[in-house]
C-alpha cells in the first residue's frame, strides 16, 4: 500500500507492505538507524519515536497507522548541527553510558517537554517509565531532562 508521511520534516511517499512495522520503515527503508530495537514487543522503549507529538514504540506501530502522520526520530533532534538542549544535557549530566537506550529516552523526554515544558521529577519519571536503561539507573537521565527543561526556560 502507498502511504504518505513526514519524518523529521521531510515528506515521503512509500509503497509498503501493510504488516511492516514503523521501526523497520525507519531503519530499513529510510536508513534512520538511530531508532533501536531492544525487544520488539513494546517493553523496552529503545524504539521510541514521536508520532504526531506523542511518544510511541515504533516496534508496535504498523505502516498503515503512519499514513498522514508526522514522525520525529532521534536524527531530527539536532538542527543545523546544533544539538538539542536535551542532547546537550544528556552529555553534560552523564546520562549516556552505552547509549543504546539513549535515542528512545531522548524521544520520550522530547515528547514530554513538547507538551509540558516544566515537568516535575515525578512527571519525568512517568514519561520515561517505559524506557529501560540497564547502565545508568535513571537518576542522571532524570537530572538531564530536568536541566534541559530549565535551560529552555531562560
Amino acid at each position: 500500500m502507498l502511504i504518505e508521511f513526514k519524518v523529521n520534516g521531510k515528506s515521503y511517499q512509500i509503497d509498503v507492505c501493510p504488516s511492516m512495522r514503523l521501526i523497520d520503515l525507519l531503519r530499513d527503508e529510510l536508513g534512520l538507524t538511530g531508532t533501536k530495537e531492544g525487544c520488539g514487543e513494546g517493553e523496552c522503549g529503545s524504539c521510541t519515536v514521536i508520532m504526531d507529538e506523542k511518544a510511541v514504540n515504533s516496534c508496535l506501530v504498523l505502516a498503515p497507522q503512519v499514513d498522514g502522520k508526522e514522525i520525529i526520530t532521534v536524527e531530527g533532534l539536532a538542527e543545523d548541527g546544533q544539538l538539542d538542549s536535551l542532547q546537550q544535557k544528556f552529555l553534560e549530566h552523564s546520562a549516556v553510558e552505552c547509549g543504546f537506550c539513549t535515542p528512545g529516552m531522548l524521544m520520550s523526554a522530547k515528547a514530554l517537554l513538547m507538551k509540558n515544558p516544566h515537568p516535575t521529577d515525578e512527571e519525568i519519571r512517568t514519561a520515561i517509565a517505559g524506557n529501560l536503561c540497564r547502565c545508568a539507573g535513571y537518576a542522571k537521565i532524570v537530572a538531564a531532562i530536568k536541566a534541559a527543561a530549565d535551560s529552555t526556560d531562560q
Binding site: 531508532t35 526520530t73 532521534v74 536524527e75 539536532a78 544539538l83 552529555l91 552523564s94 549516556v96 547509549g99
Partner: peptide, 13 residues
C-alpha cells in the same frame, strides 16, 4: 561525557 557521546545522542553511532 563518554567517548562517542555526540554520536550516541544523535543516533549516528
Amino acid at each position: 561525557p563518554p567517548d562517542h557521546g555526540v554520536r550516541k545522542v544523535t543516533g549516528d553511532l
